Lab assay of single mutants.
Amino acid sequence: LQLFIKTLTGKTFTVEMEPSDTIENLKAKIQDKEGIPPDQQRLIFAGKQLEDGRTLSDYNIQKESTLHLVL
């Protein structure tokens, strides 16, 4: 599923993930694309901070959802 990642600077980029992927996987993918170390990434969806060990489906993140990346 394609997700939109929006940064505080207003930049938006996309990543391609599976619902079974963990937040950790997502942070690694963001590191590949943007060079931001996972330990500096905080991801927010629907007002909640996402925890590394959980999956996208745990948070009911669907295709074309927008996640906010806070550094």
Rank of each mutant, 00 (worst) to 15 (best):
T66R: 05
K63M: 09
K11Q: 12
L3W: 01
E64Y: 10
K48W: 08
D21F: 04
M17K: 01
L26D: 00
I5T: 00
P19Q: 07
H68V: 15
G47W: 05
P19F: 08
G35D: 06
G47H: 07
V70M: 07
L3G: 00
H68F: 08
L3K: 00
K27V: 02
D52F: 04
E51R: 06
H68G: 05
F45L: 06
L43K: 00
L26T: 03
I44H: 13
L8H: 11
K63Q: 09
D52C: 03
T12S: 11
A46L: 10
Q49K: 10
L26Y: 00
I44T: 06
Q49D: 08
G10N: 08
H68D: 10
Q62H: 09
K29S: 10
L3P: 01
Q62F: 10
A28T: 12
A46D: 09
T66Q: 06
L50S: 01
H68P: 02
Q49S: 07
D52W: 03
D52N: 13
Q31I: 02
I23S: 02
Q2H: 09
L8A: 11
Y59W: 02
I61G: 02
D58W: 15
L71Q: 09
Q2Y: 11
R54C: 04
L67Y: 03
M17V: 09
T12D: 09
Q2K: 14
S65E: 10
G53A: 09
I36Y: 11
L8I: 09
T14F: 08
L1R: 04
F13S: 02
V70E: 09
T9W: 15
I36D: 02
R54E: 04
D32E: 13
L50A: 02
K6N: 08
T22N: 05
L69T: 01
Q2E: 08
K48R: 13
E64I: 05
I44A: 05
K29H: 07
P19V: 07
T14A: 08
I23F: 03
L3C: 02
S20G: 12
L3A: 02
E24M: 12
H68T: 08
L67A: 03
E16N: 13
E64G: 13
L26W: 00
I44R: 06
F4A: 06
D58N: 05
M17L: 15
I61M: 12
Q49V: 10
R54P: 04
P37S: 14
D32F: 10
T22G: 04
Q31A: 14
N25M: 15
S57V: 07
F45V: 03
Q62V: 11
T12V: 10
T55A: 13
K29Y: 08
E34I: 11
N25R: 13
E51T: 07
I23E: 00
G53F: 09
T14W: 08
E34C: 05
D39T: 14
K11S: 13
E18T: 10
V15I: 13
E34H: 15
L26A: 02
G35A: 07
F45S: 03
K27Q: 02
R54H: 09
N60P: 04
D32V: 10
I36S: 05
P38S: 13
S57A: 12
L3V: 10
T12K: 09
Q2S: 12
K33V: 12
Q31T: 13
H68L: 14
T66N: 05
R42M: 11
Q2F: 11
L67Q: 02
L67N: 02
T14Q: 10
Y59Q: 03
Q40R: 08
K11L: 15
I61V: 07
P19I: 09
L69Y: 02
P38D: 04
V70D: 06
I23P: 02
I61T: 03
S65I: 05
T7M: 09
T12N: 11
K6G: 03
T9E: 10
P38E: 08
E64D: 12
Q41N: 02
S57P: 03
E34P: 01
T22L: 15
Q40M: 15
T9A: 09
F4S: 08
P19G: 07
E64Q: 14
L3S: 00
Q49R: 13
E18W: 11
K48D: 06
T7N: 06
P19A: 11
F4Y: 15
K33L: 12
L67S: 02
L56E: 00
S65C: 04
L43G: 00
R54M: 11
L43T: 01
G35P: 02
R42F: 14
I36M: 06
T66C: 04
K29V: 07
T12A: 10
L56A: 04
L69K: 00
T12R: 12
G35T: 03
Q49I: 15
A28Y: 10
T14E: 10
G47E: 07
K27F: 02
L71W: 08
D58H: 12
T14I: 14
P19D: 11
Q62M: 11
H68I: 14
R54S: 09
K11H: 10
P19N: 12
P38M: 10
P38F: 11
F45Q: 03
E64P: 05
D58L: 03
E18Q: 10
E51W: 04
I30K: 00
E16A: 13
L67M: 04
S20P: 04
G35K: 10
I61A: 02
L8P: 13
T9F: 11
P37A: 14
L50K: 00
A46I: 06
G10Q: 05
G47M: 04
K33T: 09
T7V: 08
L69G: 01
V15R: 00
L43N: 00
K63N: 09
I36E: 02
E64S: 15
L56P: 03
G53P: 09
E18Y: 12
L69E: 01
G10C: 03
L1M: 12
T22I: 06
I44G: 03
G47S: 06
A28K: 12
T7H: 14
G47Q: 04
P38W: 15
L67W: 02
L3M: 04
Q31V: 04
V70L: 13
D58K: 03
Q2T: 13
I5F: 03
L69M: 06
L1K: 04
I44Q: 06
L43F: 05
I30C: 02
L1Y: 09
